[in-house]
Nucleic acid binder design. Structure first.
Lengths: 111, 111
DNA sequence: CGGATACTTAGCCTTGTGGCTCACTATTCG
DNA sequence: CGAATAGTGAGCCACAAGGCTAAGTATCCG
């Protein structure tokens, strides 16, 4: 537990950008083409494509080109990495709480 | 739901760095001084302090100086922002699943 | 008081990130 | 075929991120 995870790192870096988070959110409602995804954003396509690449290389999305259209789909499993890390943190806290409780109990036992 | 949250943004940016994640993890076991937190890392103190500042301005940790020692504590509530966002995402997916199921049901009803 | 400790401040440097334009390729459609 | 569509690729740019050193400040301890 705890040691450095490149996969988690990539996912968090990807999610640290608002544009990319919105894309993830949109893809939660189903697959979409790059152009479709880009439409809401006030940036040029090549700029937007960089975000798509970041998301893809983090594993959060998968993309496939058919004809001239590249379709993107969300990989929900990847988001679980974040869940898992958060769960680990809670584990650390509760371990500490357990120790504190034990300490209090011990102190009560030896007045 | 969904619109841009600077707070969530700051938290995810903070967590996107492995050093800072390890600090969060360490602080889960209880408060610590800056020097104590920095010890495991192969970087100079001023560099490390930047990470502390990022964590603090994201709200993930609080710090207070007493004498010449600055003590850092984790603010668990802040991590909940990430939890909430993940929960939102799952909500989006399940809404979609519901719609798909309803569609299938409707189709079955009208053969 | 004076030295050791624990940060802090200031400033520099390199790399990475996110955005742009312009030019190009590959499909699709009339 | 030829025009419109949907990405791509290349290369530039500004600024933020993360690291460093050197020097300064503010306790604390003997």
């Amino acid at each position: 537990m705890a040691h450095y995870s490149p996969a988690l790192d990539a996912v968090l870096v990807a999610l640290a950008d608002p544009t990319r988070r919105q894309v993830v959110q949109r893809l939660g409602r189903g697959p979409a083409s790059v152009g479709e995804l880009a439409r809401p954003f006030p940036m040029a396509l090549p700029s937007f494509m960089k975000h798509v690449r970041v998301l893809e290389s983090s594993g959060l999305i998968r993309t496939a080109k058919s004809g001239r259209v590249r379709t993107c789909t969300l990989d929900r499993e990847r988001l679980a990495l974040v869940d898992d890390w958060l769960a680990d943190q809670r584990q650390v806290w509760s371990d500490r709480t357990d120790r504190l409780e034990r300490l209090v109990t011990d102190l009560e036992g030896t007045p």
